[in-house]
Design a protein around this nucleic acid. Structure first.
Length: 490
RNA sequence: GGUCUCUUGGCCGAGUGGCUAGGCAUCGGUCUGCAAAACCGGGUACGGCGGUUCGAAUCCGCCAGAGACCUCCA
């Protein structure tokens, strides 16, 4: 359907993407742990895989996109004394854990909606799949790759590694892991420090727990993704995505779990997005240097000199390739904002273009370039460079420096609709409220009057009209044969 | 300490063994009553030192700097 090349972390190479059962594609992405407000870091994978989702659909695939909500807290560290993340937050705020989950899930959804991130096909919750996770543990136990100690179940990494390759995704070597593991409390239950929990017996103060064959407890950190991806996409599926920081140990453990349970690997393509940095350092919860999405949208943060709209944030993220880090700065955001406005202004200009008999521009060639950019591992920065070439073409035609015929004009319109809106997922943000006809009517009337004043050389009055309109946020552009205007929204 | 990655012009950010990435900013020009917008054009690069090559920012080595993972993290 396409010649899409996708970088596979497993092979560290771009590979030709071929689904297992075309035209169907199974895509699983690690979603958020809902215990805090979504920040810029959450926007990166959401947007990255939104682009993949959109592009696959545009390419004719039938995609089932599963993105989980982690609402069963994970341990805070690799120790028995570790506390459930969500449980901790709940106690601090004197709320039921599920109240926290509900609240932050909604916050996440709201931010994603504003960023124009499409909803996944299925958004399963870990807490709703305890039975599936227990079943998976039983399978792993049955195959001999796990052991039970005092009501907890651990994955036997050493034994697994004898038959399979633990570390194949992240490039780890088991001996190195052993040599470099820190001494942490409560490791004594495990045979080896690198073994990981599949089921943990809950301590009395642990709020979130479920019954199981081994103890009243909760599932291990990596289990939910293995269980839920298998449930909705099958034991073997096409693409698993997530942030680069999840490569190890999370995704490595997922591979081990699925392989241990089914005897075969489940994921064909592992796709990882890079991090967003701030002053060259990873923006992250644990570093306390994150900026929430709401703070971006309102400008209410000490590092922000202004508010940035959701589409500006989206455009900013897409200006970098998903496998590169992207460094946050006000300057970068502002240039993204201006660039995007220019792009969207050109889209509007297309509607005003009139076709000629002949065409001096090559739209088919431009379309080809755009397609190639996306096929080359979703290279959105290159795609955007080509779209700006299109912007130049549109503006030239508009100024009669180039001409376009009817057929090419149609192609041009389709090109921009497809790539700007359908694939990049940008959208017009201007709020026209319910004054869709009233305001333009009034503005047009004022500007018609201004033309007459200009013709009478009453420039003082003409300028007054323009100045007043500009004051309330209109951008006035005089043309040879009239005028043009838009509302800046500020 | 182990594993790995990165270092591009004022800022952001692509890319390739020889051919303009692009955006923002800046400068010059066209247009305009003046602006704005738009368009055209110009300047500014490939961390340092060696090596391979007819030719390297692109391949190799060394050095310097930055970062990621090894612990929950997108």
């Amino acid at each position: 359907m396409t010649d899409l090349l996708l970088y596979n972390t497993l092979s560290r190479n771009k590979e030709n993407f071929k689904p297992i059962n075309p035209p169907n594609v199974g895509l699983y992405v690690c979603g958020p742990t809902v215990y805090g407000d979504p920040h810029l870091g959450h926007a990166r994978p959401a947007i990255t895989f939104d682009i993949l989702f959109r592009y696959l659909k545009y390419s004719g695939y039938k995609v089932r996109y599963v993105r989980n909500i982690t609402d069963v807290g994970h341990l805070e560290n690799d120790a028995d004394s570790g506390e459930d993340k969500i449980g901790k937050k709940a106690r601090l705020e004197q709320l039921e854990p599920m109240e926290i989950v509900q609240y932050y899930t909604e916050r996440y959804h709201e931010s994603m909606r504003m960023l124009n991130v499409l909803s996944p096909s299925i958004e399963p919750r870990a807490s709703g799949h305890i039975i599936e996770q227990i079943k998976l543990i039983e399978d792993i136990l049955k195959n001999g790759f796990a052991y039970e100690v005092n009501g907890s179940v651990y994955f036997d990494v050493e034994k697994y590694n004898k038959k399979h390759h633990y570390g194949k995704l992240s490039g780890r070597v088991l001996e190195d892991l052993l040599a470099n593991t820190r001494d942490l409390e409560g490791q004594d239950e495990k045979k080896n420090s690198f073994d990981f929990a599949l089921w943990k017996k809950a301590s009395p103060e642990h709020i979130m727990h479920w019954p199981s064959p081994w103890s009243e407890g909760f599932p291990g950190w990596h289990l939910e993704c293995s269980a839920m991806s298998a449930k909705y996409l099958g034991d073997e599926f096409d693409i698993h995505g997530g942030g680069m920081d999840l490569q190890f140990p999370h995704h490595e453990c997922e591979i081990a779990q699925s392989t241990a349970a089914n005897g075969k690997e489940s994921v064909h393509f592992w796709v990882h997005n890079n991090m967003i940095t701030i002053n060259g350092q990873k923006m992250g919860k644990s570093l306390g240097n994150f900026i929430t999405l709401e703070e971006f949208f309102t400008g209410n943060h000490k590092l922000l000199t202004q508010a940035y709209s959701p589409m500006t944030v989206r455009f900013f993220i897409l200006q970098a390739h998903y496998r590169s880090t992207v460094d946050f700065s006000n300057e970068a955001l502002q240039s993204a904002e201006k660039g995007m406005q220019r792009l969207l202004a050109a889209v509007k200009t297309i509607e005003k273009i009139k076709a000629s008999e002949n065409s001096s521009v090559d739209i088919a060639g431009l379309e080809e370039k755009c397609r190639k950019a996306m096929n080359d591992d979703l290279n959105t920065p290159i795609l955007m460079a080509h779209l700006f070439e299109g912007v130049r073409i549109i503006n030239c035609i508009s100024e009669n420096k180039e001409t376009i015929d009817k057929e090419n004009l149609k192609k041009l319109k389709t090109l921009f609709n497809v790539y700007v809106f359908e694939i990049l997922g940008l959208k017009e943000e201007k709020e026209n409220s319910n004054n869709d006809t009233l305001v333009p009517g009034l503005v047009n009337m004022l500007l018609e009057t201004r033309i007459k004043l200009k013709a009478m050389k009453d420039y003082q009055s003409a300028d007054q009209i323009r100045d007043e309109l500009q004051k309330i946020g209109f951008i006035i552009k005089d043309k040879k044969d009239g005028f043009d205007w838009e509302f800046s929204g500020k």
